[in-house]
């Protein structure tokens, strides 16, 4: 075979992946809360090249969020306590969903609630209108809202009950987003799987805190806040590794991804896809360069499909 043709063929790593019944053109998705509603930076970035976009958490009623300061930089990361500021499901349906008709990528709606009924009501409202949203990511793990998801996220039975209730009302993709702030993340993942989730995503932010020693005050208004960025990547990788050994449904890896190599680390640990969060704040187009980097890796190690290497490292240690 002509060398040129051979190289062409080698570079054709199949980047597409499937979660539930949904096909993603590549495994790189933007993480909830770090890419707005998906439409803000469309003049800056060609979002149609992304594998998908997860929206900011949407709640039943609009939320103003927490008072400032809401964010602060920390070593290799940042703390945030936005407090789920969002427009609420009704305005989301009337103002944002219509914008998705031409977006060219998979939109996953992230939802948050304080009771099972709130989650149900949000999904029912969205299911009652026509939209091209491919699925829901259930935030059971936001650490910033006092009466919020935390109760679900740390409890296997509650996670199972919530997932079960939502599974009954939608055929769309159902992804349960897990918190690292628990004793055994794999057992929560098992509860989600048992109740019919199509996938789990992990991890949400890690509880953290930072203090201004001159003002003798917390740097973030709520004192406790959520740590993200490369600082939490090893925690994310370890979580995916543990979950991979406990469940059979796909895992979406999240936490501190900055480049193609970081994506690969997650995939080798057991993630079928990944979400990129904090890195978007440095460069909203960062996901695009990751896609190219993974193609090069595919060429170098002669990988025909990205799904071939999912969990290679974690299954070795089983």
């Amino acid at each position: 075979m002509d060398l040129f043709i051979q190289q062409e063929m080698l570079s054709l790593i199949d980047m597409s992946i499937k979660i539930g019944k949904v096909l993603f053109k590549n495994p790189i998705i933007t993480a909830s809360g770090t890419f707005g509603y998906g439409t803000e930076v469309s003049s800056l970035v060609n979002v149609s090249k992304f594998g998908g976009i997860v929206t900011k958490s949407i709640t039943l009623n609009p939320r103003e969020g927490n008072p400032p300061p809401r964010i602060v930089e920390t070593p290799s990361g940042m703390l945030n306590s936005i407090g789920l500021a969002n427009i609420g499901v009704d305005q989301y349906i009337s103002k944002k969903i219509p914008l998705y008709s031409t977006i060219g990528t998979n939109i996953i709606m992230n939802i948050a609630g304080t009771t099972v009924n709130e989650y149900i009501e949000i999904i029912k409202k969205v299911e009652s209108v026509s939209s091209n949203i491919v699925g829901y990511e259930i935030n059971i793990s936001c650490p910033n809202v006092k009466r919020g998801g935390m109760e679900f996220g740390i409890d296997c039975d509650l996670t199972e009950k919530l997932t079960e209730s939502l599974r009954k009302i939608t055929e769309r993709l159902l992804i349960v987003k897990l918190s690292p702030n628990v004793t055994n993340i794999a057992s929560i993942a098992q509860s989600a799987e048992k109740a019919g989730a199509d996938a789990v995503s992990a991890i949400n932010t890690v509880v953290g805190m930072s203090i201004d020693i001159h003002k003798q005050k917390s740097k973030v208004y709520t004192k406790l806040s959520g740590l993200s960025g490369p600082a939490i990547r090893p925690i994310g990788i370890a979580s995916v590794h543990k979950i991979f050994q406990a469940i059979d449904i796909p895992i979406i890896g999240i936490g501190g991804i900055t480049c193609g190599n970081d994506v690969l680390e997650y995939i080798l640990a057991g993630a079928s896809a990944v979400q990129v969060g904090t890195s978007n704040y440095r460069d909203p187009g960062i996901a695009l360069s990751m896609i190219e980097e993974i193609k090069l890796y595919g060429e170098k190690y002669i990988i025909s499909s990205i799904s071939d290497i999912v969990g290679v490292v974690s299954s070795n240690t089983k």
Binding site: P69, N80, I82, N280, Y281
Partner: peptide
């Protein structure tokens, strides 16, 4: 205000 993304996607820089 303390700013994150600068483009309206992180909701950090409120007044």
């Amino acid at each position: 205000s303390y700013m994150g993304c600068g483009v309206g996607i992180c909701q950090g820089c409120i007044i």
